[in-house]
Computed example of a mutant assay.
Amino acid sequence: LPAPRYAPATQLWRGRLHVMGGSKENRHTPGLEHWSLAVKNGKALEEKWQTETPIPRGGPHRACVVVDDRLYVIGGQEGDFMAKPGSPIFKCSRRHEVVYGDVYMLDDEMKWKALPPMPKPNSHIECAWVIVNNSIIIVGGTTEKHPVTKRMILVGEVFQFHPDSLKWLVIGKLPYRVKTTLAGFWDGWLYFTSGQRDRGPDNPAPRKVIGDMWRTKLSL
């Protein structure tokens, strides 16, 4: 890449690998830059990354999805933990984070268009999405911190976005809240596995890293 990035949105679209947003080297400062590179059969066709239109809002931990030849970037956050310089155990310090539900689409003119946001701010959803019947399904994530304790709050809903009508729906709930999970869809079943779950039904803060796999029949 032309510059280091932490957790940028990345996706293949129209024969090019697009990388946008993310955080800069300190993990905290949002990056707006957007680059692309022509690729084919796993190989780069160009020597340098091409500069594209910057994304309106930077930050990491977003879903980046192509549906019906349109590129969508969904959710994310501004800010993240920062490494403490010189720490022998690579310790990080907390910084102010802003989680958002913004949705942007890249159109035919390579311009970003803001679309209706998610039902709630949501981050840590990089791989928590699938495409079903030309709609985007997103599971779990993290939302705004608790106003008093400032602890991270995990998300337990299953969201659906219809690109045709630009409408969001909450279509279900997970067995527990979870962030940074992996979602899949096969033969009518919606799957999710791994990530970090909540502390219990009454405590949405993150605790245990999991290896469980769950599935449910999805009828849309």
Rank of each mutant, 00 (worst) to 15 (best):
L1W: 10
R5F: 04
A9C: 05
T10A: 11
G15P: 01
G15I: 02
K24H: 08
E25L: 12
P30Q: 04
L32W: 04
L32A: 06
W35I: 08
V39S: 07
K40W: 07
K43A: 11
E52Y: 12
T53G: 09
I55T: 07
G59I: 11
P60D: 07
P60I: 03
H61S: 15
R62H: 11
V66I: 10
Y72A: 07
Y72P: 06
I74K: 05
D80W: 04
F81Y: 13
A83V: 10
P85D: 08
S93L: 10
E97R: 10
G101M: 01
G101E: 00
Y104F: 15
D108M: 05
M110Y: 12
M110W: 13
L115H: 06
P116F: 03
N122Y: 01
A128M: 07
W129M: 04
W129V: 01
N134T: 10
S135H: 08
I136T: 06
I137N: 00
T142E: 14
T149P: 07
R151S: 11
M152I: 09
F161Q: 00
H162W: 02
P163G: 02
I171K: 08
G172R: 01
L174S: 09
L174A: 09
V178I: 15
T180V: 01
T181H: 04
L182T: 05
F185H: 08
W186Y: 15
F192I: 02
D202S: 13
A205T: 13
V209C: 08
V209I: 14
W214D: 01
K217E: 12
L218R: 06
L220C: 10
